[in-house]
Each structure stands twice: as C-alpha cells, then as structure tokens.
C-alpha cells in the first residue's frame, strides 16, 4: 500500500458562527488522483486551504507529507498548488515570476522551460499575467504549480472559467502528470463527470460533510440513473413507482433514480409496453452532482 501524502481526519472549521467543515476525513495516497466534488459553498476551498496550512483549523488533524502543514512549512515541499482564481503577480512577466518561483523551490531553469512547454504557454510567457486570457492565466497558474517537480498537486477547481476545450486539455494534462510522472493529485470541482474522467477515487462534499466516497464506478452504480422518453410521462412514472422504482416526471421524460440493476428497468419497460404506454427511448445517464450529494 503506498504511503499517504495527505491525511485529513475529523476536520472542523468555523467562520464566525458558521460551521463550514463538520468532521471531514479524506486521504490521498502517493501516485493517485483523488477528486473532491461538491456544490459551491460546500467547503471544498476551505478544506484544500487547511490541507496546505494556509487556513487554521478548529479541530481534527491534518498531515501533509507526514507533518502538520500549519506548524511545519516543510510539509509543502514538492507540493504544487492551483487555486480556483489564477493568481500570479502582474508586476512582472509570467516567465520572470516562474523563474523566481524556481529559485524559491530550488528548481532549475530547465524546469521553467519544461513547465511552459507542458502547459502550452510558449509564446505568451513574456507577457504580464493580467494581460493573458482566462485560459492562458490558468495555464500559467498550472505551470507555476509544476515548478519544482511536485510529487503532489492540489488543484482547486482548475477548470473553472475555461471553455469546454480548455477544460478537456487541463484534465488531460492532470491525467498525463499522474500517468507519466506519478504525481498525486487532489482535484476539486463542482462538475462530477469531469472528475470521473481523471480520478481514481472521489469524495463528495456537501454542507461541510463527506456524503459519498469511493471509486467512480461505485458512485455510478449507487446513483445510476435512467431517463425514459414517453408521451405519457405521468402514467409511466406511476407504473414504475408501483414496481418499486424511484421515478419522477421531467417534461416528456421520466427520470428513474438509484437503479440497482438495469434489468429492473428493462422489465418495467416491458410491462409498460404491454399496457400500451409508449416508450420513445431510454438513456442511461451519468449522475449529476445533485444526485450524488442527495
């Protein structure tokens, strides 16, 4: 079993009287990609900041590289961070800042070259950060996280503010870093299908609590959904409900939740067809975030 690079146990945090983390436990092992999914305000960013020692915790334990990051700054050695809002200084070119970061992290100039190439920032590296487009800013922030040969990257919604093509590229890069260099990644998002594409394990966070965790396949199976298109959705929904399925009408479709096995749906559809309820089509759909945290 690989060693834990991040170990969070029973983490609690309050802002004023508002409890934003309520006994969260999470772990990331060396070399794995872990997804953290949750709606806005679930506590993802706070959890990641506490994991880095940037924000204090009110209770629980956090070990980053085996030590408490609030107390021991060396815990952040070989840890790269991508924050939700790209955040490099605008008073100098991206290249100059990355070189400063390389000096700070004990990396080499060739690391800077590699990071710029890896994220596709070549040709823009001499621009000031605030003159870059949203996508390039995100690339610059990722390049910053890659400086110093990180063994662990914490990425807080790295695909926010990006178009679908750029989102795909960022996720592909994360997957490549993990596959080729063995970099462990903890990546947060409020878009579940994105995380399912790269993560080996997923934690779902809602209102400061972990409400689901496991491998993507487990989450899919536990929250399997089917959308059945019909011209008589009310009639079909009530028939499915009689058969013990959780069904709700959505326009001209019926959404069936938490399906333990697809055969139950097929059986129900056969009975519906026998009773003359028209079925126009069936889609097995990926669970959305709200399904996972419900």
């Amino acid at each position: 079993m690989p060693e834990k690079i991040l170990d969070v146990r029973d983490l609690r945090k309050k802002y004023g009287g508002l409890e934003v983390l309520r006994g969260v436990s999470l772990s990331v092992y060396r070399g794995e990609v872990v997804g953290l999914v949750g709606p806005n305000g679930a506590g993802k960013t706070t959890l990641l900041k506490i994991s880095l020692g940037i924000v204090r915790r009110d209770g629980g334990e956090v070990l980053l590289n085996g030590v408490d990051p609030w107390v021991e700054p060396s815990s952040r050695e070989k840890v790269g961070v991508i924050f939700e809002r790209p955040n490099l200084p605008s008073s100098m070119s991206v290249r100059e800042f990355l070189e400063s970061a390389a000096r700070l992290k004990g990396a080499s100039e060739s690391d800077v070259e590699w990071a710029i190439e890896a994220v596709g920032l070549a040709g823009h590296e001499w621009k000031e950060f605030n003159k870059l487009s949203a996508g390039l800013k995100q690339r610059a922030a990722i390049a910053h996280a890659l400086i110093g040969s990180p063994e662990f990257i914490i990425a807080d919604e790295p695909t926010s503010n990006l178009d679908p093509m750029e989102r795909r590229e960022v996720l592909t890069l994360i997957a490549r870093l993990n596959k080729e260099l063995g970099v462990a990644v903890l990546v947060s998002s409020h878009i579940l299908p994105e995380l399912l594409r790269v993560a080996k394990r997923v934690y779902a966070l809602s209102k400061g609590r972990i409400v689901a965790e496991g491998e993507p396949q487990e989450i899919f199976q536990a929250k399997r959904l089917a959308r059945i298109r019909t011209t008589e959705p009310e009639r079909l929904a009530s028939r499915l409900a009689e058969l013990g399925l959780e069904a709700s009408v959505e326009g001209l479709s019926v959404l069936v939740r938490s399906i333990s096995s697809p055969s139950i749906v097929y059986e129900a559809l056969t009975k519906a067809a026998d009773e003359g309820i028209p079925v126009l089509g069936v889609d097995l759909v990926e669970p959305a975030l709200e399904e996972v945290i419900s």
Partner: peptide, 9 residues
C-alpha cells in the same frame, strides 16, 4: 495564497 503555499514559514 500563492506565497503562503510555498514551503516557507
């Protein structure tokens, strides 16, 4: 945040 994420006290 970026400064505080460095391995620096």
């Amino acid at each position: 945040q970026a400064f505080l994420s460095y391995p620096l006290s």
